[in-house]
Design a protein around this nucleic acid. Structure first.
Length: 228
DNA sequence: AAGTGATCATTA
DNA sequence: TAATGATCACTT
């Protein structure tokens, strides 16, 4: 299957932003039609569809590589489902959590820190009652964490990673962390990966991922749209 | 209603 | 299996 429309990579953050502005106000149905993509009836079996459609349309490098969506710009694209009042409907996945060999890993060298250095947020009005094709794309914007935000993230990250290092992963739940949480990130509850047990022994556990809590992304949206 | 834990598709 | 893209759906 070949797409009739194959965007090229944006050459600058300005160009990327301009492409976003051209999408603002369009529905996912319109964007999909331009891309020559069929809109699924719902996201139940296509949970990543929206993100992949926008990646494609904006000219991001496709694939499951562990690098930013726009490698030459160092920018990560995140779609953000919101309700009518502009509040995020979901937490935002950041990256998988390393569970072994992490002793001595510093915040500055962590995947979380690197991924969040420069994010293109793309809000999408995505209340469940709205059919997928009619959901509207909002105004995307570039964000870099403020010193305060960075500190909050670092604190949560260090606390979670210390627990992982000390073999306390079994005790970590999603409620922990003010802005960053650790939750399962797997095909199902039977998928296993290696981690460190309470006595330092190797154990098998559910793969985990780091997520930004909705309150944190809500603050990012407010901070941006209040200053515009 | 919110928030956590569970799950789905796809590509290496 | 592990990485990418996330939302679903049950519990609280």
């Amino acid at each position: 299957m070949s797409d009739p429309y194959m965007p090229t990579a944006p050459q600058s953050s300005t160009e990327l932003l301009q492409r976003c502005q051209a999408l603002a106000g369009l529905t996912l149905g319109q964007i999909a039609a331009t891309a020559g993509v069929t809109v699924p009836a719902n996201l139940q079996r296509d949970k990543g569809w929206v993100g992949q459609l926008l990646e494609h349309t904006l000219g991001a490098t496709a694939g499951s590589k562990a690098e930013p969506d726009f490698p030459t710009l160092g920018i990560e694209l995140k779609t953000l489902p919101i309700d009518q009042s502009g509040k995020p409907l979901e937490s935002t996945y950041v990256c998988v959590a390393p569970l072994t060999g992490v002793a001595g890993l510093q915040w500055q060298d962590s995947w979380v820190c690197q991924k969040l250095q420069h994010v293109l947020w793309l809000p999408i009005l995505a209340e469940r009652q709205i059919p997928l094709a009619q959901r509207m794309v909002g105004t995307g914007f570039l964000w870099q964490p403020s010193p305060t935000q960075l500190q909050l993230l670092q604190q949560d990250w260090e606390e979670l990673m210390e627990q992982i290092t000390l073999g306390g992963i079994a005790n970590i739940r999603g409620a922990q962390g003010k802005v960053l949480q650790l939750r399962p990130k797997a095909a199902n509850s039977k998928a296993l990966t290696q981690a460190v047990g309470a006595s330092g022994e190797p154990i098998l556990t559910l793969p985990r991922g780091f997520y930004l809590k909705a309150g944190f992304t809500a603050a990012i949206l407010q901070q941006h749209f209040n200053s515009v």
